[in-house]
Computed example of a mutant assay.
Amino acid sequence: MKTHESHPQHPLFLTSSEPIDCGACNEIASPVLNCVDCGFSLGYDCATLPNKVKHKCDTHFLSVCYGEETSGEYWCEACEACERKVNPSTRFYTCEDCSSTLHITCVIGEFTFWRPGKMAISRHEVAIIPNDFASRPYCYMCRSRCEDTSGIIYISEKHICSSKCLEVYIKFDLTFSKLETVEMALHNLELFRLDHTSHGWSIL
Score class of each variant (00 low, 15 high):
51 N>L: 12
52 K>G: 00
54 K>Q: 11
55 H>M: 07
55 H>W: 09
56 K>P: 06
56 K>G: 08
57 C>I: 04
57 C>F: 13
58 D>Q: 06
59 T>F: 10
59 T>G: 14
59 T>C: 14
61 F>C: 01
61 F>L: 06
63 S>N: 12
66 Y>L: 07
67 G>T: 11
68 E>C: 14
68 E>K: 13
71 S>W: 15
71 S>Q: 00
73 E>Q: 15
73 E>R: 03
75 W>L: 05
76 C>M: 07
76 C>S: 13
78 A>W: 04
78 A>F: 05
79 C>G: 03
79 C>R: 01
81 A>N: 01
81 A>D: 00
82 C>Q: 02
84 R>L: 05
84 R>I: 02
85 K>R: 09
85 K>Q: 09
86 V>T: 03
86 V>H: 02
87 N>R: 06
87 N>C: 10
88 P>W: 06
89 S>T: 05
92 F>N: 12
92 F>E: 09
92 F>D: 10
93 Y>E: 13
93 Y>W: 13
94 T>L: 13
95 C>M: 09
96 E>F: 15
96 E>C: 05
97 D>W: 10
99 S>V: 13
99 S>R: 04
100 S>C: 07
100 S>A: 12
100 S>E: 03
101 T>C: 08
101 T>I: 08
104 I>C: 01
106 C>N: 00
106 C>Y: 04
107 V>L: 11
107 V>Y: 13
111 F>W: 10
112 T>V: 01
112 T>W: 08
